[in-house]
Design a protein around this nucleic acid. Structure first.
Lengths: 115, 115
DNA sequence: AGTAATGGTCTGTTTTATCTGACTATATCA
DNA sequence: TGATATAGTCAGATAAAACAGACCATTACT
């Protein structure tokens, strides 16, 4: 099941997943979209340290990997919304596990120190 | 619960988690240790594209963040083993979710193409 | 004496990631 | 006419990540 092939790590499913959603931004973008922050401008504001170019790149890669869907409205000024595909929604257990861990081991600790 | 603070993404637990286990290697290292590949040499072989220096750096950071424990045996040649702490074990839901997704959406797809 | 084994460290270099700022298109409103 | 809004694109610069290869210590074995 979860065992690692000693011969060939390229068959490791964790490695495979990392190659798709690894990097600084993708997990956060998926998390944002799942929380209805699904327009370019909003995302750009939330991820305050991301450049527009990088955001575009990440969104395109997620789209090409079938994780998000890009819906263009025929309006001026342009309106584009991003949605998770089923394949993308299947990643939510990952973000949820991260959310839980962050709450338990990082944010609560910080609060404890504050108090 | 899982909602995002629009004002301040630094309070986002997913972001917090990413800041600890983000990067190319840490998730994989945690996964390896959990599969009893817990010595420097073994890890180095499994992560075939990692340099020794990078592996050292990642292990030290994980240790400093309380995610792994470094056990030194008084032997020659040196023997060191790494273990997950409770805080580290609490991250296993993340690697498990990644493993499941990788199996479902990457490795199986590859097999389907092969067949 | 010479070699192997383990878990590193150190310096220098390359590769990759990411940012900055200017620029584009078009309809609407003042 | 000029500003505003949105979702980008593009070239060039810079910062961060990561690697390569030499080197170290100690003991056992040949």
């Amino acid at each position: 099941m979860s065992s690692i092939s000693l011969e060939n790590i390229t068959n490791c499913p964790v490695t495979a997943t990392m190659s798709v959603i690894g990097g600084k931004w993708k997990i956060l973008i998926i998390h944002l979209i799942n929380n209805d922050i699904n327009r370019f401008g909003k995302m750009s504001m939330m991820l305050k340290d991301i450049s527009k170019q990088m955001l575009t790149t990440q969104l395109r890669e997620l789209e090409n990997d079938g994780i998000i869907l890009r819906k263009i409205y025929a309006e001026i000024p342009p309106k584009v919304e991003y949605f998770l595909t089923d394949k993308g929604k299947a990643l939510l257990p990952v973000t949820e596990a991260m959310r839980d861990w962050g709450n338990a081991f990082v944010l609560n600790e910080a609060k404890a120190v504050e108090a």
